[in-house]
Design a protein around this nucleic acid. Structure first.
Length: 432
RNA sequence: GGCCCCAUCGUCUAGCCUGGUCAGGACGAAUGGUUCUCAGCCAUUAAACACCGGUUCAAAUCCGGUUGGGGCUACCA
């Protein structure tokens, strides 16, 4: 990467969400690509809240969007709110009327569009795109209620804020010629445009509430970590080559808008989980524990005072089998349960045979241990199995279920050590 | 309907611009190995150039059309 000494024509991009809903996956990907482009070019990233629809815009959505952006690590250099800039839009609309380029229609302001002109632009991602103005109606600039129409406030702001590259979703392609007309009318130089492919649901249809989780905050609640979600998102429409796991910082260095592809991508939850799991494994256990503590406390599995050392050991034990943070709650929950019991259906499946005799023998031997660790518990277990003259599997599986209420999980002796001597023995005795 | 965009394994994609590799990687799937189970890890396998024409000695790659999918068509953003 060359690091030019602040070129005069520095890149400036923006992400312009409308606070009429949560930040969704598609918006996040758009923000991400803008952000990566800014970083790759040594430019600036502007966050502009497009809250011109006073009815539908809500402060809580605005907050949620900014929180999600921050959580994803997409920091902004400048922040604007369109609701604070209505005067500016009005000014430009008046100017266009004065110049005879727009007309009043009641209290609204309309831009007259000349017919039979080809409007061309060279899309950063798609190449040359041409529209004929015969397909474009006269454009509302200011609405009757005094608020600006989307296209107009967008153009005024992009021009005034010095946005050099407008990178947005493909659904805006047909807005582009309309906006180019507005740049022309106001005498502004149009920026470069790049239209990103859309993200589709698994069924190939548009991502919607029906699809399941669409809000970034939903993924956060489900236990995805930002590094994982970001890495997955960057793979939708762009590829760093034969490499899937690439931290944002490194991705920025390789990012090229020209290499973004044109095809809509389907969102694949399985791959997201896999990517997330890679980052879970890469996260130092201490940090992972920090992330888990609030979740466990919220679930009532952990009090204010807990044994940090044993919690970290538990985290270490489950680290390789977590897709999400939330998986830990489900899989390691037995380590924290106050009143542990094996659910009836699990008993029915794995503890049908009464093994009280065997369990008592094991519990008795375990209670004699001075040092309760991996080696000592395994030794005792092997001895008991030998003494009983049974295959180790015959005892391993029932014991695992009795201790953890699950037939699957970490190694049996890891479970015993994590539980500790007292609880291990108590659960063995309570089994039958 | 009109206008615009798009088209490689089931999915995400590399390759396409500058035609000539067994069309490569990853998720998922299947199989085997490791192991007390699961996960993990390792190995192996199956799996794609939408279709039809054209240009060319040669087409996933260039051109045209067809089909299919998507977007826009608001005083929503």
């Amino acid at each position: 990467m060359s690091t030019p000494a602040a070129p005069a024509s520095a890149v400036k991009v923006r992400f312009a969400p409308s606070p009429t809903g949560y930040l969704h996956i598609g918006g996040a990907r758009t923000a991400l690509f803008n952000w990566m482009y800014a970083k790759a070019q040594g430019g600036k990233f502007v966050l502009r809240v497009e809250d011109t629809d006073l009815e539908r815009s809500k402060p809580e959505f605005e907050k949620e969007i900014m929180d999600s952006m921050a959580w994803l690590g997409l920091s902004w250099d400048e922040l604007y709110k369109q609701s604070e800039r209505f005067e500016i839009y009005r000014e430009y609309a008046e100017k266009l009327i004065t110049e005879g380029k727009a007309v009043r229609d009641g209290t609204a302001v309309i831009l007259k569009v000349d017919k039979s002109r080809d409007i061309k632009f060279d899309d950063l991602i798609r190449g040359l795109i041409v529209f004929n103005t015969d397909e474009i109606k006269d454009q509302v600039l200011m609405k009757s209620d005094g608020s600006p129409a989307y296209s107009f406030s967008c153009v005024v702001d992009d021009a005034l804020m010095g946005i050099t590259h407008v990178i947005r979703g493909e659904d805006h392609i047909s807005n582009t010629p309309k906006q180019i007309l507005m740049y022309e009318a106001m005498g502004f130089k149009a920026p470069k445009f790049g239209h990103l492919p859309l993200i589709m649901g698994t069924d190939g249809a548009r991502l919607s509430k029906r699809f399941g989780a669409v809000a970034v905050s939903d993924y956060r609640k489900e236990g995805f970590i930002p590094e994982g979600l970001v890495n997955y998102l960057m793979l939708l429409g762009w590829s760093p080559g034969n490499q899937e796991i690439l931290p944002l910082k490194n991705a920025c260095e390789k990012f090229s808008i020209k290499k973004v592809n044109k095809t809509a991508a389907q969102f694949d939850m399985e791959k997201l989980k896999w990517v997330n799991a890679q980052y879970v494994k890469l996260t130092p256990t201490g940090k992972l524990t920090d992330l888990l503590v609030p979740i466990l406390q919220e679930e009532g599995l952990l009090g204010e005072d807990y044994d940090r050392a044993s919690l970290e050991k538990a985290v270490e034990m489950f680290k390789s089998r977590l897709n999400t943070l939330r998986d830990f709650v489900e899989r390691a929950g037995f380590l924290f349960a106050r009143d542990f019991t094996v659910p009836a259906d699990v008993r029915a499946g794995h503890l049908m045979k009464n093994m009280k005799k065997e369990f008592d023998l094991l519990a008795g031997r375990l209670s004699g241990l001075e040092v309760f660790d991996l080696a000592s518990t395994e030794k005792v277990f092997r001895d008991v199995v030998a003494e009983l003259g049974i295959a180790s599997g015959e005892l391993v599986h029932p014991v695992r279920v009795a201790l953890s209420a699950s037939a699957v999980g970490p190694g049996l002796f890891d479970i015993m050590v994590a539980l500790g001597k007292d609880r291990t023995i108590a659960r063995l005795k309570a089994a039958f």
